[in-house]
Design a binder for these strands. Structure first.
Length: 514
RNA sequence: GGCGACGUAGCUCAGUUGGUGAGAGCGCUCGACUCAUAAUCGAGAGGUCGACAGUUCAAAUCUGUCCGUCGCUACCA
C-alpha cells in the first residue's frame, strides 16, 4: 500500500458522549483512550482524521440535578461537562472536537434528522400508558415497583396516559438483519463478531416501536412539528455523531466525512448503537451506516467495576499521579484486550509500567545511549542494510499495523514490544560494550538505534510524550508523531552521524509504597 | 424467566477457517553478564486447555448435556 492511496483518506472516530451527571472514571477513560490511540495511528498513516468526543446534557436527571444545585440546567451542564474536557486534557486525548448536546448546532441537527424520519412516515403519534411516580416524574415497569409503590419514594404510582411520538423501529427488522449479516467485504457492521451476534439476537427477539418524546419535561430538544414535546434523551444523544460532521448544516461536509465513521463504545450501550441508531439513520435516509467497535468491561475481582464501587474509587487523575500520563495510557491499552471483559488492577498497571516501559523500552534507550557514548564517541551510527533486526522490525510492523487496523491496541503493542525485547536479546548476544570503537560496534549500535526509531513511531499512539523524548535523545529532528507510515517504518532511515544523549531514566521503576 | 459471554500454566491473558510434541508476560528455581533504571540474557520447573459424551484420520478449537462465574433485559465505558 503506498501513501498515495491512503493519504487524505477520511477517518472519523467517536467515543460515546458521556452523561454530564457522571464523574469521569477509568471506564470512560478506557473507551476514550482506545479511540484516541486509534485516531493517532490513523494520523500516522496520513489519514485525514476527525476524532470526536463530548457530553450528553439533556434529560430529567440533569434537569433535576441542576435544580438541586440551584442552577439553570445549562449552567449546571457547563460546569459538569468541563470535568470531562479537563480529564481528556490531562490524559492527552487528541480529540478534534468536543460536542455538547446543548449546542445550537446539535439542536438543529436533531430536528433536521428526526424531521426527515417524520416526513418519511417513521414517526407517529400515540399514547403511552404506564405507572408514573409524580415525585420522580418517571414511569416504572411493574417489576421495578416495591409492593406497588415507587421504589424511591415508596408512594403509590399513578396510572398515566401521555401523548407521545413513537419511532417505528419494528419497520426496520429486515434491514437491520441484512446490515448485521453483511459480509466483511462490505465493511463490518459491528466488531468483534460476538457483539454483532448479540445485536442480531436483539433484533430476532422482536422489535417494538419506541416512544421518543416527552411532554413531562422541558430540558431537551423541542420536537419541530409539535413544540409541546421534547425528544427523549437517547434519541437526541445518538445524533451527535451526525451533528459533528455537519448534518443539517453543511451537506457537502457531511457527505465527505460520514461514510468513514467508526464508533467506539462499551457493550452496555450496544442496543442503542447497534439497533436503534442504525434504524434511525435508515429512517432518515442516511447511508451508509457507521462501523461499530465494541469493548467489554473492566472488572474488579471478577465483577463489573460499577457494581463493586471500584469504578469511582480510583480516579484517572490518581493513576496519572502514580504512573504519569503515558504510564496510565499504556497500561490501559496494553492490559485489556479490546472486546472481552478483563480484569483491572493496580498491580496490573505496576507490572505493565515496570516490565514494558521501564525495563524493556526505557532501559533499552538508556543502555544504547550509554554504549554509543562510550564506544561511538556519542555519535549515533547508521544501521546495517541487511540486519536481522530489520526483518524483525518489518514483521513487528506488519503485525502491529494489522492490529491497529482492526482496533486491537493491546495486540499492536504486544507486537511492538516483542521487537524491543528482541533488541535487548540482540545486544546481549553482540556485547557491543566489549568492542573497540570501529565499524563493528557502529553496526550493532546503528541497528539498535534504528529499532528505537521505528518502535518509537509505532508506540506513539499509546505513549505520545515519552516517544518524543526518546526521539530527541537519539538525535532525530522533528517528532515521532509527525512521521508517515508505512514508509517511516522501513529499515534504514536512521541517518547516522547524530548526537545521542544519555538522559535520566524515561520511566523510573515504580516502587509501591508499602 | 429470556438472551448472551466466559471457564487454557501460581497470576493476568493469547490461541484466524479443527492438524508440526499446547504459548506469552509476570512470579518462581538455577546460571550468565555487568553497557543499562537491583536492569538485561540463557536454561528450567509448572497445565488431564471446567466435567462428561459425541462428530472426525485428527479438537483447547465443532455438536450436545452438565457444573461454575459473570453480564444484558430502555438511559452505568
Amino acid at each position: 500500500m503506498s501513501s498515495a492511496e491512503t493519504s487524505g483518506s477520511k477517518f472519523v472516530i467517536t467515543t460515546p458522549i458521556y452523561y454530564v451527571n457522571d464523574v469521569p472514571h477509568v471506564g470512560h477513560a478506557y473507551t476514550t483512550l482506545n479511540a484516541d490511540a486509534v485516531a493517532r495511528w490513523h494520523r500516522l498513516l496520513g489519514d485525514d482524521v476527525f476524532f470526536l468526543t463530548g457530553t450528553d446534557e439533556h434529560g430529567l436527571k440533569v434537569q433535576r440535578a441542576a435544580e438541586e444545585a440551584g442552577l439553570e440546567p445549562l449552567d449546571h451542564a457547563t460546569r459538569t461537562s468541563e470535568r470531562f474536557a479537563s480529564t481528556w486534557e490531562l490524559l492527552n486525548i487528541s480529540n478534534d472536537d468536543f460536542i455538547r448536546t446543548t449546542e445550537p448546532r446539535h439542536h438543529a441537527a436533531v430536528q433536521a434528522l428526526l424531521q426527515k424520519a417524520y416526513d418519511n412516515g417513521y414517526i407517529y403519534a400515540d399514547t403511552y400508558e404506564g405507572d408514573y411516580c409524580v415525585s420522580c416524574e418517571a414511569y416504572y415497569v411493574e417489576d421495578d415497583l416495591v409492593d406497588g409503590n415507587c421504589p424511591i419514594h415508596k408512594r403509590p404510582v399513578e396510572h398515566m396516559v401521555e401523548d407521545n411520538y413513537f419511532f417505528k423501529l419494528s419497520a426496520f427488522t429486515d434491514q437491520l438483519t441484512e446490515w448485521l449479516e453483511q459480509p466483511e467485504s462490505a465493511g463490518h457492521s459491528i466488531r468483534p463478531a460476538g457483539y454483532r451476534n448479540e445485536a442480531l439476537g436483539i433484533v430476532r427477539q422482536g422489535l417494538d416501536d419506541v416512544s421518543i418524546t416527552r411532554t413531562s419535561i422541558s430540558w431537551g430538544v423541542p420536537v419541530p412539528w409539535d413544540t409541546d414535546h421534547v425528544f427523549y434523551v437517547w434519541y437526541d444523544a445518538l445524533i451527535n455523531y451526525a451533528t459533528a460532521v455537519g448534518f443539517g448544516a453543511d451537506q457537502q461536509r457531511f457527505d465527505q466525512w460520514w461514510p468513514s465513521t467508526h464508533h467506539v463504545l462499551g457493550k452496555d450501550i450496544l442496543r442503542f448503537h447497534g439497533v436503534y441508531w442504525p434504524a434511525m439513520l435508515m429512517a432518515a435516509g442516511i447511508d451508509p451506516l457507521p462501523q461499530l467497535h465494541v469493548h467489554g468491561f473492566l472488572l474488579l475481582g471478577g465483577e463489573k467495576m460499577s457494581k463493586t464501587g471500584g469504578l469511582t474509587a480510583i480516579t484517572p487523575a490518581e493513576l496519572v499521579d502514580d504512573f504519569g500520563v503515558d504510564g496510565f495510557r499504556y497500561a490501559m491499552l496494553r492490559n485489556h484486550s479490546f472486546g472481552p471483559d478483563s480484569d483491572f488492577s493496580f498491580e496490573g498497571i505496576v507490572e505493565a509500567f515496570n516490565t514494558d516501559l521501564a525495563n524493556t523500552y526505557g532501559n533499552l534507550v538508556s543502555r544504547v545511549a550509554t554504549v554509543v557514548g562510550k564506544n561511538c564517541g556519542g555519535v549515533g551510527p547508521a544501521p546495517e542494510p541487511g540486519a536481522s533486526l530489520g526483518e524483525a522490525a518489518a514483521t513487528a510492523y506488519a503485525e502491529a499495523a494489522a492490529a491497529w487496523d482492526s482496533v486491537q491496541p493491546s495486540a499492536a503493542l504486544d507486537a511492538t514490544w516483542r521487537l524491543l525485547r528482541e533488541t535487548n536479546e540482540y545486544l546481549a548476544e553482540m556485547e557491543p560494550w566489549k568492542m573497540d570503537p570501529g565499524p563493528e560496534v557502529d553496526a550493532v549500535m546503528g541497528n539498535a538505534l534504528e529499532v528505537i526509531r521505528i518502535a518509537s513511531i509505532m508506540a506513539s499512539p499509546a505513549i505520545p510524550e515519552a516517544v518524543e523524548i526518546a526521539w530527541k535523545r537519539i538525535g532525530l529532528d522533528g517528532q515521532a508523531c509527525q512521521q508517515r507510515l508505512p514508509e517511516a517504518a522501513v529499515w534504514g532511515a536512521y541517518p547516522g552521524g547524530l548526537s545521542v544523549e544519555v538522559g535520566d531514566p524515561m520511566f523510573p521503576r515504580f516502587k509501591p509504597s508499602s
